[in-house]
Simulated scan of single mutants.
Amino acid sequence: MAKNTGNDYRKGAVTARTQFQQPNGDYQKRDERSGQFMERKQSPGPFKGVAKEPDGRDTKNS
Results as ranks from 00 to 15, higher is better:
1 M>F: 04
1 M>T: 13
1 M>Y: 03
2 A>Q: 06
3 K>N: 11
5 T>K: 01
7 N>V: 01
7 N>Y: 07
7 N>D: 12
8 D>V: 05
8 D>A: 10
9 Y>D: 11
9 Y>R: 04
10 R>D: 06
10 R>A: 04
13 A>M: 07
16 A>F: 02
16 A>G: 02
17 R>F: 05
17 R>G: 00
18 T>V: 13
18 T>W: 00
18 T>F: 02
18 T>E: 10
18 T>Q: 07
19 Q>V: 04
19 Q>W: 01
19 Q>G: 02
20 F>A: 08
20 F>E: 05
20 F>Q: 02
21 Q>Y: 08
23 P>A: 14
23 P>V: 07
23 P>M: 05
23 P>H: 00
25 G>A: 08
26 D>R: 11
26 D>Y: 14
27 Y>D: 04
29 K>G: 03
29 K>V: 15
30 R>E: 08
31 D>G: 04
31 D>S: 12
31 D>H: 11
31 D>K: 05
32 E>R: 09
33 R>P: 01
35 G>V: 08
36 Q>C: 07
36 Q>F: 02
36 Q>A: 13
36 Q>K: 09
36 Q>E: 13
37 F>A: 01
37 F>P: 06
38 M>T: 03
38 M>C: 11
38 M>F: 01
38 M>H: 02
38 M>D: 08
39 E>Q: 14
39 E>R: 09
39 E>W: 01
40 R>Q: 15
42 Q>N: 12
42 Q>T: 15
43 S>K: 15
45 G>L: 05
46 P>S: 14
47 F>D: 02
47 F>Q: 02
47 F>A: 03
48 K>T: 13
48 K>Q: 14
48 K>C: 08
49 G>W: 02
50 V>C: 04
50 V>H: 00
50 V>E: 01
51 A>E: 13
52 K>A: 15
52 K>H: 15
54 P>W: 00
54 P>T: 09
55 D>T: 10
56 G>N: 04
57 R>I: 03
58 D>M: 09
59 T>P: 12
60 K>E: 14
60 K>H: 12
60 K>G: 14
61 N>W: 09
61 N>G: 09
61 N>I: 12
62 S>C: 11
